[in-house]
Amino acid sequence: MADFEIKDLRVSVEGREILKGVSLSVNKGEVHAVMGPNGSGKSTLSHTLMGHPNYKVISGQVLFKGKNILALQPEERAKLGMFLALQYPVVVPGITMSNFLRTAINAKRGYDGKDKSKAINVKEFRALLRDEMSVLRMDDSFLSRYVNEGFSGGEKKRAEILQMAVLKPEIAILDETDSGLDIDSIKFVSDAVNRMRGPELGVLIITHYTRVLKFIKPDYVHVLVNGEFVRSGGPELADWLEAKGYSEWVKEPAKAPAALEAK
């Protein structure tokens, strides 16, 4: 059995079935790309895996570390080693990035406000962030700003990857991390993700466009259309999609506005 196994997952949003029986096996050390046109259910998949309350599981299982994680709260999934980089990271006024990151790191370490020895100290925290922030070309001023407030699109995505880097998940889901990014930002983000690749990390990249896959080379590519996987293959499938698009399955306008995809 794979390290992370999605079995026949069916999910509805506001009473409408979006995922119609999706199965996927991801092992640590592998990078899987899930590609699909707008409205195919890509974001539903990512949000369901992380436990967003708006997505209702009809049936199926997601097995990770011997547990069906669909029964767990988002915080428990995170503690187990899952991470979701959001397509649209939310602005959280009044909470600084520094406070947010420190609290998340401490939660992972099991610090509950009592045993101070479990909490990360200032020096460690600094050291942990310094490297990752330089790869992502983020300066110190990020830390004193409120979470995502006033961040450009590229800064938000980089901040997501920074969180991933310090939380060190075992299964990371990157939801349209490349959307809305200029080519430089895609490079910084890809560099950071590639640094993290290794035998301890499985990655699920969810994307509409093949562009990001030139920088983060996937081991496997899966095509999601209308809530079902219609084709799976190796990296060559991405090249094929680059040339053909999704026209085999859907009629698509030449330039699809990605923002209209069902969240």
Binding site: G94, I95, F100, T103, Q163
Partner: peptide, 27 residues
């Protein structure tokens, strides 16, 4: 959405709620 975001980072619900209230009043 704020709660989900914090919880998806492993922050327990009561801590997330307290942070959000303090953040809200922080202004």
């Amino acid at each position: 959405e704020h709660l989900f975001y914090l919880e998806s980072r492993g922050i327990p619900h009561p801590v997330a709620e307290r942070m959000l209230v303090q953040g809200f009043l922080g202004e």
